[in-house]
Design a protein around this nucleic acid. Structure first.
Lengths: 329, 329
DNA sequence: ATCGGCTCTGACAGCGCTGTCAAGTGCTGT
DNA sequence: ACAGCACTTGACAGCGCTGTCAGAGCCGAT
């Protein structure tokens, strides 16, 4: 009933506790036959090393903590998939926590990871301020996903939001649209880069950019969509700063009887599961979140293991996924 | 740079290590002044108790593990919200992990929680087999959310799927529909109860039930929707076993030019964020997942603390949320 | 017979904390 | 002045493991 310890395994295998410890740590100084006997005894007893004790003694836990800023946002699960896959391959455990959209809870989540003794922390969509992040990085290796930072101690993994903004815009221009409006993401991560990608693409083609300021929420998109649909002359196309807001925009347009893509085209950003839903089928800019998650783990483990000093800032190229909401003029 | 220990705090406060330990454990045998000095020294040094050490010594961790079966399903985040809120109030930490939709990984997630020494495990939407769950429950307190089990050692928290199925069906009947089809969720949790809720409600009103078997996925809904839309005489209304599949159904109907709710009504189940999206606006049966999460924590803590023997099976009442996909005939 | 080389043992200290206990310390009331 | 009380101390064992080390045992090779 009580959990078996190393002692128990050693006794069952008829070998010493030290040897069992060596086997558990994967030492190569153990003969195959002994290893097998130990392993057999361990599975027999259902033995599993006590991580708390192991960590206490070894100062490392082979565990990394992943804090997702918002569980509700379909952006994050896929990042988590990538993180989980890469970490598992490297022999690390992943602990998850959510910031529940509040910076304070996010901090608390990170602190509790540190208390538990994780070897490193991954923050996806962090709300925590840049200076707090620096302080954090002094205590534990930190990698931030989905937020651009000019830090020398915090590694980051991002997609190229500038290129993504340009990509979306040029797609619409290629389709023959000229009056293209951008609904932006306010203070949201990557929002300003996406906006300037849009603006420069427009200007490069001799078009006048028009930005409507909003947020990364459905509600904000809905309002913006209604506003645009209510105009005497609605735009020919809209590039929205993320999928959630884009779906809101679709709703707002539908309220006014505007048909997508017959009357106008809409492009989103992030290519979340939402965009892929057949009933929505939103053309969107994809950032390969799975890869971002993997990359983040690699970078983090590098820092944990090698003690790299300088920060690494990875930027991956976005791509466009064409669906049913964008069509030629 | 290195993390401060109790020793350090004691020295800084000019008190003994034993006293610091008492303060950290919230003992009432400490004078207010000493308590304050200790606390002041602790915050000064940025001291945080090492959870691994604490757990090792005390045999309890004040931590519970929450395993979400699938991060991608919008059903779960809200459960997590409730769990987090209730656990925090009770002074417990919550560790999250995902089963990434695979039973084996789910098992692994639970095992790693146990290795870490959580005081109890919460499983939301567990894939793990019933007998495995029993075995698990012998090792650690377990509560399962969103799955009906007839266990004497595992507590459960569910919504009343039977009543929910009836609710959805009667709503459609009340609207004047008679040829109402149910698209079910196959082996999915609660699927069979929802199905029989539908069937009995139909029969109670002298109507003939018709069930199309599908799954809890958008893809399955899409196929079923297309199939129904292609009929010479499509049904007047469809009750779909969950929101994701219902959204698929909407897509399938739209493909065939059927308008919702003008040509037929659609009702989903779960009232996920998907249903609330304006552009979708799906009438759906709501299970109060936040409350379910809270309840699950209460039940779990009861078992952890009191050592209750028998199992508790909570069932909460679902409610209908009317939106734009259902209308009078 | 001797010498490594390999494998294994037993012992020990230590990780940071809990939990218990006998033995203080200082203060109060009488 | 002395008991009684509330608080504090120091000591110790222990949680399950790591990590290191001297040394034992056994093997084949020289």
């Amino acid at each position: 009933m009580t959990k078996p310890t190393m002692e128990d395994v050693a006794r069952a295998a008829g070998l010493s506790r030290a040897l069992v410890s060596l086997v558990m740590r994967g030492s190569d100084k153990v003969s195959d036959s002994s290893r097998e006997r130990v392993l057999a005894a361990a599975t027999e007893l259902g033995y599993r090393p006590n991580l708390a004790a192991r960590h206490l003694a070894s100062k490392r836990s082979l565990t990394i903590g992943l804090v997702l800023n918002d569980l509700h946002n379909p952006f994050f699960p896929e990042v988590a998939d990538g993180v989980h896959a890469a970490a598992t391959e490297a022999g690390y455990h992943v602990l998850l926590n959510s910031g529940y959209l509040r910076g304070a809870l996010e901090r608390e989540a990170v602190e509790s990871f540190i208390d538990l003794g994780v070897d490193g922390v991954l923050l996806a969509g962090a709300r925590i301020g840049a200076s707090d992040l620096e302080q954090l990085a002094a205590r534990v290796p930190v990698t931030v996903i989905g937020r651009h930072l000019r830090s020398t101690s915090v590694d980051t993994v991002n997609n190229d939001d500038l290129a993504g903004g340009r990509l979306a815009t040029e797609h619409l221009i290629d389709l023959g649209h000229r009056r293209i409006v951008h609904i932006d993401g306010g203070q949201g991560a990557g929002s300003s880069q996406r906006r300037s990608g849009y603006s420069t693409a427009m200007r490069d083609h001799g078009l006048e950019p028009e930005v409507i300021s909003a947020q990364f929420t459905e509600e904000a998109g809905l309002r913006a969509g209604r506003r645009l649909a209510g105009r005497a002359q609605p735009p020919e196309a809209i590039f929205v700063a993320n999928d959630l807001a884009a779906v809101g925009v679709l709703g707002g347009l539908a309220d006014h009887g505007l048909r997508v893509p017959d009357d106008l085209s809409v492009v989103g950003y992030d290519n979340t599961s939402l965009a892929g839903i057949h009933h929505i089928s939103l053309t969107s800019v994809d950032q390969d979140r799975q890869t971002m998650g993997r990359l983040a783990v690699e970078v983090l483990l590098e820092r944990i293991g090698g003690g790299r000093r300088g920060a690494v800032h990875h930027v991956i190229a976005p791509s466009l996924v064409r669906r049913a909401t964008s069509a030629p003029r």
